[in-house]
Design a protein around this nucleic acid. Structure first.
Lengths: 340, 340
DNA sequence: TTAATAACCGAAAACGTTTTCGTATTTTCG
DNA sequence: CGAAAATACGAAAACGTTTTCGGTTATTAA
C-alpha cells in the first residue's frame, strides 16, 4: 500500500509533476484535455494530497487551537460543539486542550499550539491567570486570537463575552421584584473578573433598590461545585442567617443549595427563592425547576469561530485586524425556584 | 519577527545545518563544546522546530483523532477529558470531531482525519452506522484504531466497552430485589447494539426471576432525550399501565420520567421505583437522587488512549498488533429512586 | 614514523507539495 | 508573411527538517 504522490501520477502519464499539480487545482495554463486525464488518473489511484507537504509549503495547518478550563461543563461543551461544527464546515480541524484552571498548564498549552503552528487560537482563561506573557507572545507572533467568557482586558484581541455585571444585576433585581428583601449571594472565587463582576452586579442591584448590602450575606465558592452549594446552604440554616433569596454564581452551586434545602424541608421558593446562572440544561429538569440567567453557549461559540475566521482571512490578505468586543445579550429565565 | 530556523543558527555560528540539528538532538558524533554553543544560540533565538517540516520528514503528526456522537454529554465529555489529558502528557494533541450520530458525517470525518494523517484514531460510532467501509479503510491504511462504547463487531480492532447486557440485567435485577414485579423498560432506538443489549439484559432478568416479559411494557426512545422520558411517563399514567418499576436506557430519560411523575404526584420510589444508566453527574443531585448503573467514563478514556499508544508504538517497531477487547466493570448504584 | 582508528563535522538527498519563470509551440492579426 | 500574442507545459527552487554517508582532522597503536 504505497503512498500515492503527484510524482506517481506524473510518471504514469508521462508528464511533469508541475502539470499534474496544476491540473488538479484547475490552473488556467493547463489544457482541458490534460486536466481530464490527470483527474481521472488521480481518482483511479485515490490520490490524497500529503497534508504535511502542503502545510510546509503553504505555511498553514488548517488547524485551530481551543483552550478551555473544563470540558465536562455544560456551558463550555456547548461552545466546543458550536466551534467544532463551524470549523469543520470551513475545512478546519480543532485541537482542544483543557487548562484545568491552571495557569501553568495554560502557558504550556499555548506553547504547544504555537509549536504546532495552528492558524488561530481561541481561549477562555484559567480562573487565576494573572501573568499574561504567553498571550502577549501569541499577539507578537501575529497568530489570530479570540478570547471568550473569561478574558483579560490587558490583551488587545477580539473578545466574545457577556456583561456579567448587568446579568447579575438583573438576576438580583428579579429576586427583588419577587419580593425578596434579604438576598444572599453565593459568589465565586475572589480573583477572576467574571466572579467579581457578578458580585458587583448583585451589590449594585441591592443598593439601587434600597436594600442594605451586608458582607455576611456573601459566601465564597472557591471551586464552584455542587458540594459548596450544599455546604453554604447548610451554613445558612445552621447559623440562622435571615435569608429569603439567593443568587448563586452558577447553576451547579444553586442546585447544590436546592438539594440541601430539600433535605431540610425548606420550601422553595416560598421560604427561600433561588436563581442560578448559565441556564445549564439540567436546571429545567430539576424539582423545582431553577430560575437562571441564560448564557448562550452555542451562539457565543459561533461568534467566536466566525470572528477568528475573519481575522485569519484579513491576516492572509495582509490587512490589519481591528479587534472587536462582542457583548452577547443575556436574559433572566423565570422558573419555579423563584416563581412566587 | 522572522522565523528562526536551523539555517539561521548555523549561519550565526558558521557551522552546518546538519551539525546544528544533531547538536540539538544530542547525537553522539557532535562534540560537547559545539553542543553547548548550539544550544545556547538556539535558546537565545528562542528556536522552535518547524513542526510542518518535522512532520513531513518523520511522516508522523503527533496528533490523534477522536470522533464521538455528542460533545455535550456527560459520559462522552468525561472520556474526552481523560483522553486529552493523557495524550498531552505524551506530547500528542487531539483533534475532536462530533458525528451527531450521522453516519454520513462520520464517513467524512474519518476521511478528514486520514487526510490530516493523524497517528491514530479513536471512535465511538454513530447510532445507526451500518456501512463500515470507512472503518475498513482505516484498518487497510494501517492507522491504529481503537473503538469504545459504540463499536462494530465486524472490525477487528481494539475495543473498550462495558457489558451492556450484563449491566442492564443487574439493573433490572436490582429492581426485582427491591420487590418490583411489574417493570417497564424505556429502551433506546432499535438499531444500535448497546440499545439492543440493554433490552436483552432487561428481558433476561425478568425471565430468570419468574416474571413475564410483556412487549407492552417496553417503550422506545428514539432520541434518548429528557422529553421522551416525560412523554413515556405520561403515557404510562394516562394509559394506566400497571407499573411499579422502570429501567431507563439512560439517566437523561430517567430524569425526564421522574420530573413528570413529580408533577403528577406519583411517589418515587414507593409507587414506582426507577433506575437509570450511566451515572451522569446530576443523578446524585436530583430529588429524589437517582439509582443508576455506573459507566466509568474517565477510566474508559484512559484505557482507550493507553491502548492506542500501545498500538502506535508497536506499529513503529514494525510489530503486529494484537487487538484486545477490554470489558470494563460496571456496578449498580443504589440511591433514593429505588431505595424502598 | 607510519598505519590504523577514533572523533568530529558537512554535503546532500529526501519527504511531497506549490509556484515562478522560462521555453516551445501554436495561433492571431496587420 | 512575419511579428506579436496566446497557449501549454516543464525545470527548478523553495518550505525546514532529518539522517546517511564520506571526508577531514586528531589521536592512538605498532
Amino acid at each position: 500500500m504505497e503512498q500515492v504522490t503527484l510524482k506517481q501520477i506524473a510518471n504514469n502519464l508521462g508528464i511533469s509533476i508541475a502539470t499534474v499539480s496544476k491540473a488538479l487545482k484547475d490552473y488556467p495554463d493547463v489544457s482541458e484535455r490534460t486536466k481530464e486525464i490527470v483527474k481521472a488518473e488521480a481518482a483511479r489511484l485515490q490520490y490524497q494530497p500529503n497534508s504535511f507537504a502542503v502545510n510546509l509549503r503553504t505555511q498553514e495547518s488548517k488547524t485551530l487551537g481551543l483552550i478551555i478550563p473544563e470540558v465536562v461543563h455544560y456551558f463550555f461543551s456547548s461552545i466546543v460543539q458550536a466551534i467544532i461544527a463551524h470549523a469543520t464546515k470551513k475545512g478546519y480541524l480543532v485541537i482542544i486542550l483543557q487548562s484545568d484552571d491552571s495557569p501553568e498548564l495554560e502557558v504550556k498549552q499555548i506553547d504547544l499550539l504555537i509549536r504546532k503552528r495552528v492558524d488561530g487560537i481561541m481561549i477562555s482563561l484559567a480562573n487565576d491567570t494573572v501573568d499574561i506573557n504567553h498571550l502577549k507572545r501569541v499577539m507578537d507572533l501575529q497568530i489570530p486570537l479570540v478570547m471568550f467568557d473569561k478574558i483579560s482586558k490587558l490583551i488587545p484581541c477580539s473578545k466574545v463575552i457577556i456583561d456579567d455585571r448587568k446579568a447579575a444585576y438583573e438576576a438580583t433585581k428579579h429576586l427583588i421584584d419577587k419580593g425578596c428583601t434579604k438576598i444572599a449571594h453565593l459568589r465565586g472565587p475572589l480573583l477572576p473578573q467574571n466572579s467579581i463582576d457578578r458580585f458587583l452586579g448583585y451589590k449594585k442591584a441591592l443598593e439601587d433598590h434600597g436594600l442594605v448590602y451586608d458582607p455576611k450575606m456573601v459566601l465564597v465558592c472557591n471551586k464552584i461545585t455542587y458540594e459548596e452549594g450544599r455546604e453554604h446552604a447548610q451554613f445558612i440554616l445552621d447559623n440562622r442567617l435571615d435569608v429569603d433569596g439567593i443568587f448563586a454564581i452558577t447553576d451547579m452551586v444553586a442546585i447544590g443549595a436546592i438539594s440541601y434545602f430539600n433535605e431540610r424541608q425548606v420550601k422553595i421558593p416560598e421560604e427561600i427563592a433561588i436563581i442560578g446562572f448559565s441556564n445549564w440544561f439540567i436546571s429545567s429538569a430539576m424539582t423545582p425547576t431553577l430560575s437562571t440567567v441564560d448564557q448562550p453557549g452555542t451562539k457565543m461559540g459561533k461568534k467566536v469561530i466566525k470572528q477568528l475566521f475573519k481575522e485569519i482571512k484579513r491576516k492572509k490578505e495582509g490587512k490589519i485586524v481591528q479587534p472587536i468586543i462582542d457583548v452577547m445579550p443575556t436574559n433572566v429565565i423565570e422558573r419555579a425556584s423563584s416563581g412566587r
